[in-house]
Design a protein around this nucleic acid. Structure first.
Lengths: 218, 218, 218, 218
DNA sequence: CATGAATGAGCATTCATTCAT
DNA sequence: GATGAATGAATGCTCATTCAT
């Protein structure tokens, strides 16, 4: 189910209350995880009571889905705002990667949460969440295809895999934060290194040399 | 705590019982997840009873840690068996990556389980599990350092980051199985593509061209 | 309490709304039983809202009583319409029995409902419902008394008990529908058999023989 | 399900605990009805706690079924002890009826309870309870058939219906106790009247006269 | 060393009813 | 007179853990 049913008539009130629920639940889920957070805990932290909470939500799972939906929407909005230069695939890829790195950085804890609690969702909802990743990988994939067409990226590159790699290497920042702290200090450094590695992995061999110049110029 | 306390004197008995617990718990955790598996479920599938189980373990969390430990040890053993040719960094990296890909493939569900339930563990134990990853990344890191020394890999490559990337891109096979099914058919194909991309991302620019020959020969 | 209090001034409105409540509640109570029907369920099926419902009724029990009252009234009305020939007690009894059998048949589910949920009502209201049965037993009782007077029914017959028996044997059709399905096919057959047995049980011995003729003529 | 599963190994303990549960539950169900009695109420009145209660029972419905089962068994035992003289159908019928009247008298409240709460049981269990009635009606039915064979009861009598009538007229004592109090003082009087009416309703017309003598002799 | 039985604390969810507008 | 929103109090049930034997 994409839409959560409610008996409340005022849509604005629904939106507001659900937003409060999402805020509280996100915080608590992040602190203690989904299973160790009881509905009572959530209600206690809300400005209304447990029975009222159930007027805006039909189950605990609904709340997790609400949290997931918000993350999805915000990520999609952020990603949609990314402008991609059509004529320069390598540069476009860098831009997209940087943007997604920043989004991941901003939503680090939420992403960890979803990785962890995804299986709580019903299969349909799990599917919705997973499918939302394609809003990101699609961006990467399109750029890679264009790059291959233009002869910038190697013909033997599989666009879907590269897109997933890019996505996943960004998630690294969320999932292995501690391990990365031993390596790089901040996202910018992280991004620079990943961008270099990922891009060089894709460029046609002839272009690798030229790219040196571009990189040096930056 | 690394060691789980017990009042049982005979260490062999402890080892044997715990091994049974691990087997049963691993199976059930994989089937239903940690939270949906009750201690009763585990005891029911053991050749001894619930109260006895508590003689070898002090809490449900202990069991998860036991399961994690076994996975860690098995992965470490498998990784330790990988022979790495010291004189050819690129080839060594390929070998190590392939090995780890295979290990990940073999333990796909276990890795998913750990990613998901890691936060159930106490911080110290979580740390132990995370630290165990270095038994893998260390292998990669050493190869990369050697490669940089020998001038095969770029000087601006951060060995720790590349090692983590390698590790993580292998985990991709475990965590995003469904998404990958749309791209590659089996681990071998997956490995080949990842190896190519990761390696090219690291090689010094001069070597990229030469590598073409090597790759073509394969 | 016989009268249910309300703050609404307009008596016609009260009557109309309550009639709607009764219709809806009767349907739902019959479908799911009293306890499995929530006040929300009832309100949802009414053309007005939950809070409004409480303007015409003060509790869920009120609703059950309203439903009971309507059933009582309808049964009383139906029973009142039965014309009883004063000069032939046996025939009068048959007629009354047949009429009540038909009423029971018509209100089968309602009667089951009341038998089941009677204890939900307050003692006073329970009493009112039970007392309403006398509107039926009184009819039978009067006929029996007249029959005894006329020497048609045995002097040792207790009119009140026979009346209750008659009533209850009709209820059999409502309460043990399944068991009866193994015996008789429809109410008419059911009625014929019960009438014969009940009547013969009452007639003076001398009349039993004569009755044979009457029965044969039918 | 006829047998209620339990994790307790000692069958005697199970029997004892369940017996305690049945006693408590019967009392509470009779006082307040099934729905107004909470599992907590039952546990509170037991010498063990709520969680322990669930070791002997898997649901609240189980408890009602346990109560029903006990009633069934006790009624069956009591009915089985009734000796029926094969050679005298009328007298046999009287004996059986008297016995059942006494059983009904003893279990008056339980019978009311079952009439009321039968629908709480699963269809299978409801069926078991209803089927148990045949242990009683079968006794009556057999006697009636024998009586018809012997020419004591009328050929046009339907044995199954008469058996149900007999059963149900006994239940009258349980279900309409209050109404009956206005008529007869005790069960013995009640039984005498019912026996007379029911029997005369069945006898062949020729026998009705003779029966007068028999009755007078008593 | 093993185990059968017990339990305190907790959980998600529901519902009859009320009140401010 | 109507209604949308709110809520206190319960309810059936589960589970990790302990202890007497």
């Amino acid at each position: 189910m994409n839409r959560i049913p409610t008996t409340i008539k005022d849509p604005e009130l629904v939106a507001q209350r659900r937003s409060e629920i999402i805020d509280v639940a996100t915080r608590l889920f992040l602190e203690r995880g989904f299973h160790k957070t009881s509905i009572r805990d959530i209600a206690r932290a809300c400005p209304f009571n447990l029975a009222s909470l159930y007027m805006y939500v039909t189950s605990k799972e609904d709340i997790l889905f609400l949290v997931a939906q918000q993350l999805i929407e915000e990520k999609a909005r952020a990603m949609a705002a990314v402008e991609v230069l059509d004529d320069n695939p390598a540069e476009s890829f860098r831009t997209a990667l940087k943007s997604y790195c920043r989004i991941v950085h901003e939503y680090r804890p939420h992403i960890r949460l979803l990785y962890r609690e995804l299986d709580v969702l019903t299969p349909e909802r799990r599917e919705i969440v997973m499918a939302s990743l394609s809003s990101v990988t699609d961006v990467f994939e399109r750029i890679v295809r264009k790059g291959i067409e233009k002869g910038v990226f190697g013909r033997d590159i599989e666009p879907k895999l590269v897109a997933l790699n890019a996505l996943f290497l960004c998630h690294l920042w969320s999932l292995h934060a501690r391990a990365l702290r031993a390596v790089t200090l901040n996202i910018n450094e992280f991004f620079d290194m990943q961008a270099k590695i990922v891009l060089q992995g894709m460029l046609t061999r002839e272009l690798v040399a030229k790219e040196t110049v571009v990189a040096a110029a930056r």
